[in-house]
Structures are given as C-alpha cells and as structure tokens.
Amino acid sequence: MARSKYTEVELGMIADISGNLKRILHLKGVSQTDLSNKTELPTSTISDYVNGKTLIPPGNLQKIADSLNVLKSDINSSFKKAQSYKSIPLIDRIFAGEGLLAEQNVEGYIHYPFLDSRQPDYALKVKYDSMADAGIESGDIVFMRYAQWADYNGQIVAALINNDKEGTLKRIKWSEGSPLIKLMPGNSKHKVIEVLPNQVRVLGVYMGHFRPESHEEIAKG
C-alpha cells in the first residue's frame, strides 16, 4: 500500500523521477505497457511512477533502469552525486517517426566523462561539413541534450525540417518582425534554410563534441 505522506525531499525525488521517466520513454519510443512487460511490474505500478504518484523502491528502480538500458541516475538524479559519466547512446542519424533512441536507431554507446553535472542524452555522428566553420567536422561525435526548442537564439540544434525523413545539425535563429525561423549552416558553402515554426522540430541542443581518433573533447556549449 502506498504511503499517505512523503517528505519534501521525497516529493522532489518523485517529481524528478516522473519527469525523467517520461523523457526516457519518449526518447526510446517505449510505452508504459512495454515497460511493464519488460520489467514484469504491473502497468498500474508503472503508471504511478511515470505520473509521480509513488516513489520507486530501489529494487524496482534497478529493474526499470536495466530494461531501458540506462543508469539508475538517469531516472533518479540523486544517484548522480557519486557518478562522473554514463553510457551515452550513439545514433548514426536523426530519423522521423519512432522514438529517437529506439533500439533500432542506436549504433552503440560511448563512455565519456563530462566533468560537471550536465550529462548528454545522446551522441550523434556527424556526416557532413555543414558546421565546419563552427569546428564541427565530418566524422566528429556531437553530444546532444534532448530538448524541444533552443535555450537561446543562435544555439546549435538537431532538427527535422518539414517532412524530411532525416534530421540536420544547424544553428537556429529568429528575429522580431519575421515569422520565419532560420537554420544557419556553419559553412558558407551551404545555404540558409528558412521555415515557419511549425515546419521545424527540434530534437536536441548541442553540448559539445570530440574527434573519435583522439578522443579529445573539442568544446562545450
């Protein structure tokens, strides 16, 4: 039976877990029913966790983390204090359709330490030179944090444009007095893309990148 009252700390933890679970399930294209089947936990129990009604006990937290192929700290942020890095899913390209981190889209995992508390949600392999002037070259690995819009004007984002099946990495800009969103390449050889807000879907914001041959981190945003 669920406890009738939680402490303020526990209530904060429940809200944190709820938000993280919703984000992870969305990214991976996993439904609550799918998660229930994988963990063998009742759908009502999964629903309570996702909707922030009850606190996940440690045993169930581990089951859910294992089923989603994430760390416990990805679900319950209080575990991050003793952790310096996590396994970051590497995707070959951004697709429309199913969850961004659905199993069929994940090429592998990168174990790379971020020195602060911010951890990327996924890594993207760069295939073209459209952001070369920003220091992001073909073959680089770009770290992304999942977001549905940019944190600020001019931020580098991963985005899907119109009905394109594959996404792109561009700097997003907007201005007062214009209804258009500009997706700016970091290379003068490529054209600026102008679209209406409902024609672009942001799937992540840039956090940093490195070159695989050296494993040297190039930048953080």
Rank of each mutant, 00 (worst) to 15 (best):
residue 164 D to P: 04
residue 68 L to H: 03
residue 90 L to C: 04
residue 82 A to M: 09
residue 87 S to Q: 12
residue 46 I to G: 00
residue 157 V to I: 11
residue 34 D to A: 09
residue 215 H to I: 03
residue 210 F to W: 07
residue 164 D to F: 15
residue 206 Y to A: 03
residue 105 N to Q: 03
residue 133 D to F: 11
residue 21 L to K: 02
residue 26 H to L: 12
residue 139 G to E: 02
residue 92 D to L: 09
residue 195 V to Q: 15
residue 53 K to Y: 09
residue 221 G to Y: 05
residue 97 G to S: 00
residue 71 L to A: 14
residue 192 V to W: 11
residue 205 V to I: 12
residue 211 R to K: 01
residue 133 D to P: 10
residue 170 K to L: 02
residue 8 E to K: 05
residue 61 L to S: 13
residue 165 K to G: 11
residue 127 K to A: 13
residue 149 W to I: 11
residue 4 S to P: 02
residue 54 T to I: 14
residue 121 D to K: 11
residue 26 H to Y: 13
residue 179 P to A: 12
residue 22 K to V: 06
residue 58 P to H: 12
residue 3 R to F: 05
residue 192 V to N: 15
residue 119 Q to D: 12
residue 72 K to G: 05
residue 49 Y to S: 10
residue 45 T to Y: 07
residue 8 E to M: 08
residue 107 E to A: 15
residue 25 L to A: 07
residue 166 E to C: 06
residue 55 L to H: 06
residue 30 V to F: 01
residue 153 N to Y: 02
residue 172 I to G: 00
residue 137 E to R: 08
residue 126 V to R: 00
residue 104 Q to P: 00
residue 51 N to M: 02
residue 5 K to A: 10
residue 90 L to G: 08
residue 124 L to G: 00
residue 172 I to M: 01
residue 6 Y to K: 00
residue 85 Y to M: 08
residue 200 V to E: 00
residue 86 K to T: 10
residue 33 T to S: 03
residue 96 A to S: 14
residue 164 D to M: 08
residue 174 W to H: 07
residue 32 Q to A: 05
residue 196 L to M: 13
residue 36 S to L: 00
residue 106 V to P: 02
